[in-house]
């Protein structure tokens, strides 16, 4: 078995090395990545999409299908975790102690350290501002929906750790939870159909100059949906895995 694994690894490695040897030299101006669509993105991307950060332009406009399915993958991960029996089983809620000093979850009685409590509360607003800035300026500077989602999600996880899951759960309104979890795929589907109606192509973006504002609005909707939906999914993944079993 070990020999087989070694042979397999060597064969795969050799294949990769041969493949890499066939690539054009790094930075070669005649390489395929510089002569096909890449050149067009660089030359006309800003004019065509109105998005000044070309990474965002490629991510949301030119390669929208990729990103659509990425969002679906994150959503599917959450669905898979929630489908695990131990993730959704909850112990009966203990009455009368929920209003006491902040406690970590309900599985143990170790009170949260006042130092950690204070520092997380101190830093949380800054983290939130950073996430919003990265979202708001995502079409100009590095950043955007996915980055913002990861930062907001991490903030929600940190708050959940110090305030306890009951308090943290209130960050997400109960009735809207399912909708927020599916926000990314839903927004993409809606925008895709809007694009279909406007351009005749699924997930198409209107290309003419007059539709500039509309195009930008579509991109902003996608960015916000990715950020909020992704953050809720990350926090929910944490809550589900952290649930006492």
């Amino acid at each position: 078995m070990k020999t087989f694994a070694l042979v397999l690894v060597l064969v795969v490695a050799a294949t990769m090395v041969i493949g890499i040897a066939g690539l054009p030299p790094h930075g070669d101006p005649d390489g395929p990545i510089h002569t096909h669509v890449g050149a067009r993105y660089l030359e006309r991307g800003v004019a065509e999409t109105g998005v000044r950060n070309l990474v965002t332009a490629v991510l949301l406009v030119y390669r929208g299908f990729d990103t659509f399915l990425e969002v679906v993958v994150i959503f599917t991960a959450l669905v898979a975790v929630l489908a695990l029996p131990s993730a959704t089983r909850r112990p009966p809620p203990a009455r009368g102690e929920s209003t006491a000093a902040p406690r970590r979850g309900s599985d143990d009685a170790v009170p949260v350290s006042p130092v950690v409590f204070f520092v997380v509360r101190l830093l949380a607003p800054f983290i939130a501002v950073f996430a919003l800035a990265s979202l708001y300026r995502g079409h100009v500077t590095p950043g955007g929906g996915f980055q913002s989602a990861a930062i907001i999600g991490a903030m929600m996880i940190a708050l959940g750790l110090v305030f306890g899951r009951e308090h943290a759960a209130r960050l997400v309104p109960h009735g809207a939870k399912a909708w927020l979890q599916a926000l990314g795929p839903l927004a993409f589907a809606i925008i895709a159909f809007v694009g279909w109606r406007l351009t005749g192509a699924f997930l198409g973006f209107p290309a003419d100059e007059a539709a500039h504002a509309l195009r930008e609005a579509m991109v902003v909707v996608l960015e916000v949906a990715i950020a909020v939906g992704g953050a809720v999914i990350l926090a929910q993944l944490f809550m589900a895995l952290d649930a006492p079993s």
Binding site: P142, G143, A150
Partner: peptide
């Protein structure tokens, strides 16, 4: 830098 932010937040953090 876009990828770097994501890598740090998702890969190293979450």
């Amino acid at each position: 830098p876009d990828v770097a932010i994501t890598e740090a937040a998702v890969g190293a953090g979450v």
